[in-house]
Each structure stands twice: as C-alpha cells, then as structure tokens.
C-alpha cells in the first residue's frame, strides 16, 4: 500500500473541503473494500477522506412510509435494528447475510451502495425495494443510480448521505452465496409494493438488474408457483469458475421462488 494523506472530517462541509483540497482523493466509509484495494495498489489515492466521524451520516429513522438509513450505518446495525426488523425484515435479513460478523461490524450501507460491486447484496435491496439514494447534492432513484459493475450515477466528490426505503407490503431476499466469500452467486430481492411487484437480481450479471419476466408473472398471483423463469439473456450473465450463465439463470428463478415463499410466510 502506498501512503496517502488521511483526513477525518466532522461534517459534510469539512468533508467537501477535504475532497476539494486534494489532488486525487477517495472517500472511505467502512473501508472493507477500499483497504483491500489499497493493499493491492488497485487504488492509489493522494488522500483518504474518512467519513466515520460525521454524525449526520449515521442512524436509522422512521419517516412514516419509509425508513431512512444513514450512509455510515453498519451492516450489523441494520441487521440488529428493531426498527428495520419490524418494518422491513427483508432488509435486516439481507444486511445480516453480508460477509461475516467482523465485516458487518465495519462495512456500511453507503460504502456498499457507492462501490456497486456486481455481486453485492445492497444494490438488489435498493432496486428491489425501490429505494432512493440521498447524496450531498441530490436524490437519485435506485433504478437510475446503479450502472454496470462498480459504476454509479455519483459524480466525483459526491457523497452518499443516506438511503430511504419505502416500506413494502411484502418482501424477502434470497441469496445463493459463494461459500468462500459470501458474495452472491445469485441474490434476488422480491417486493410487493404499492407500485407493483419488483424483482431485483444481483450477482448474476454485470450489475444489478430488474427481472421483468418474473415481475410480470407475479403481478396477478404473488405465489412461488407463479414465478416464471428468468427473462435474462444468458449472454448478459456471468459465466465463471463458480457458475455458468445457464446455471445462474436457473438460480434466478429458484431464488425468486424462495424469496416469494419467505415473503409470504
């Protein structure tokens, strides 16, 4: 790891100033993707701006028909939150299945969302639940936020401040994890919302996507038997040592059925 300047601002204003004053800065949330990347010299920033001391980025609040989760809230805090468990248990369950306990103690929702790993769990949670990403500059619908692998709508220096999740009628997340890394080989968030059924898939492709074929199949009857096969094009799915594209496509349907069953239980 090359050395860098380290900054720990106490407010968003100070964070913006630290970013503006550096030649090649990087924002750090929990650091559980960034620090490994720094070790491998995949990232070589001039300055690291650590967001851990900014109180306005922390905490979970009930906003009536939505839960608003601060960007620096850890996976463990989301998983163990009474509020999340009672209002959106699917989200608490998703957070409790990320990595291992020590990763969940440090990793954050804001970091996960900003990083947009194509096999991460939160992108499916955000798109499946129709979340809105709040940043230091604006609010972005999850459908418009996540691009292909590691790409997002964020501009340079733009800081994710919170994610708001509309409370769904029913929802569940089912994941087929890689047994070593716990990343999703395929993960599917299914939600029955006031705007219809949403089905979001992570791990299978080059970034999170909605499976409209499965969404349509669940429009009339929200049951596991009604789940259609995935509408994804195999050419757009990942094929690697862990699973072929054909297998991943099959898993999307299986995980969707499991999620519908869990959501209806």
């Amino acid at each position: 790891m090359y050395d860098f300047g380290y900054h720990r601002p106490n407010s968003l204003t100070e964070a913006n100033a630290a970013v503006d004053g550096a030649t090649d800065p990087v924002l750090m949330a929990g650091g559980h993707t960034l620090i490994p990347a720094l070790k491998l010299r995949l990232a070589q920033p001039s300055d690291v701006v650590d967001l851990c001391a900014i109180d306005e980025l922390k905490g979970i609040r009930d906003d009536g028909d939505a839960l608003v989760i601060g960007a620096m809230t850890t996976h463990c805090e989301v998983a163990e939150s009474d509020l999340v468990m009672s209002r959106i248990p699917a989200l608490a369950s998703l957070a409790g299945g990320i990595g291992d306990p020590q990763v969940r103690h440090r990793g954050t929702i804001g970091g996960s969302v900003a990083n947009n790993d194509p096999a991460a769990d939160y992108p499916a949670g955000c798109v499946g639940l129709g979340a809105t990403i709040h940043t230091s500059k604006r609010q972005i619908a999850a459908d418009d936020f996540f691009g292909p692998s590691f790409d997002t709508a964020l501009e340079d220096g733009e800081i994710v401040t919170a994610v708001s999740f509309p409370v769904p009628g029913k929802a569940a997340y089912a994941k087929f994890p890689n047994p070593a890394s716990r990343y999703a080989i395929v993960g599917v968030m299914v939600a029955k919302t006031s705007d219809g059924v949403r089905v979001a898939v992570t791990g299978a492709g080059h970034g999170v996507f909605r499976d409209t074929a499965i969404e349509l199949s669940l429009a009339d009857a929200f049951t596991a038997d009604a789940v259609a096969g995935s509408g994804a094009d195999e050419d757009d799915l990942n094929s690697d040592i862990h699973a072929s594209a054909e297998y991943r496509k099959h898993l999307i349907g299986v995980m969707a059925k499991r999620a519908v069953t869990a959501a209806s239980g």
Partner: peptide, 28 residues
C-alpha cells in the same frame, strides 16, 4: 492479510474487527 481468515481479530470499542482491514488512524 485479505480480510478472510480472522487470525487478526481484536476488539475495538468492544466489537470484534479484523485489524488487518482497519487503519491505525481509524482506531485513534
């Protein structure tokens, strides 16, 4: 050294963490 194995687990403010994936300055 890649956050996988847990040989480096210590407690920071009472919570177990992987000390190979945390900067010393973060524990200040």
């Amino acid at each position: 050294d890649t956050s996988q194995c847990g040989a480096c687990v210590v407690h920071v403010n009472g919570q177990s963490v992987k000390s190979c994936t945390m900067l010393a300055v973060q524990a200040d």
